[in-house]
Nucleic acid binder design. Structure first.
Length: 290
DNA sequence: AATCTGACCAACCGCGGACGC
DNA sequence: CGCGTCCGCGGTTGGTCAGAT
């Protein structure tokens, strides 16, 4: 290997003992921030030395990208962001940096942590591999609809309007179609079967239409144009390029999933995404299928 | 009040690709 | 072509904190 020990990579024979490790101090943060403000980022090993930091270039880069960079977004991931992570992960797998590119202000580290702490926890509780098809099905059929529901709830409460959602009898190919969400409140009773809903910030359009304009207000989309063959999401992105297009994901429904009558007891989706009933139900279905 | 436990997340580590000499 | 260095990515670890017991 070329890099025998990258922590020493700036000069192999140099004093390793002087290199600081562990949590960054305010002083170090200030040094790094000021240096980058003056000279820009990049050339991390040189930067570390010139800034007077007793850190590896690698450590400086990580601190800057994951914590100090001005456009880092703080706080919990929104349901929209969670939904996007689930979708992009189903498409690209553990390509965290690639996924992060589509969530402005979020770092690959943050997304990776989210996946490991939240998503894989659910997989453990289900006693299935987090990368297995079964788990992906569960994500599609249980989790994503609940996130969508959450998105709808938060947006409708913020707009003070009960969102009228005209039911569609049509299913759009290659679009997510989810099982019904039972135990809807009266407000949400409009949501029933086989409709396609999209969170705020998402617009749906076909490749036969023009690039859509940003839609900022709709809370729930349902689409009944049967002629569509391909679909895209467009997520609003104020800081990134003018819209992000993602090829429509295939949400192939499985017979197993179709047979599920979910019994949702809780609306606390962001914390307890699946309650025990859900988990046992899913386990039983899996066992029946085997 | 003390201890335990689990969740969260910042930071580290190893690896591999790119690049220059 | 081989070697050394830099950089970025994904996996992993360990510290901290809040809630449970």
């Amino acid at each position: 290997m070329a890099n025998i020990n990258e922590n020493n990579m700036s000069s192999p024979m140099e004093e390793d003992s002087e290199l600081r490790r562990g949590p960054w101090t305010l002083e170090e943060d200030t040094l790094l921030t000021h240096y980058i403000a003056r000279h820009g980022e990049g050339r991390w090993n040189m930067l570390a030395k010139c800034a007077g930091l007793k850190r590896t270039g690698k450590s400086c880069r990580l601190r800057w990208l994951n914590y100090l960079k001005p456009d880092i977004k703080r706080g919990n991931l929104t349901p929209q962001e969670q939904l996007l992570i689930l979708e992009l992960h189903s498409k690209w797998g553990n390509r965290w940096s690639k996924i992060a590119q589509h969530l402005p202000g979020r770092t690959d580290n943050e997304i990776k942590n989210y996946w490991r702490t939240r998503v894989q926890k659910q997989a453990r509780q289900l006693n299935i591999e987090s990368n297995s098809n079964r788990f992906l099905d569960a994500v599609r059929c249980f989790w994503m609809p609940r996130l969508l529901q959450k998105v709808e709830q938060t947006s409708s409460s913020s707009t003070q309007t009960s969102v009228p959602c005209q039911l569609s009898d049509h299913m759009v190919p290659s679009l997510p179609t989810f099982p019904p969400l039972p135990n809807q409140t009266t407000d949400n009773s409009v949501i029933t079967t086989e409709q396609t809903i999209y969170p705020p910030g998402f617009t749906y359009f076909s490749d036969q239409t023009e690039i859509p304009q940003h839609q900022t207000t709709p809370n729930v989309y349902n689409y009944n144009n049967q002629t569509l063959e391909q679909s895209y999401y467009n997520i609003e992105n104020s800081s990134g390029p003018a819209g992000y297009d993602m090829e429509g994901l295939s949400f192939a429904s499985t017979s197993t999933m179709d047979s599920i009558e979910a019994n949702w007891m809780s609306n606390e989706m962001t914390d307890n995404l699946w309650n025990l009933d859900d988990i046992w139900q899913f386990r039983e279905l899996g066992e029946m299928g085997n």
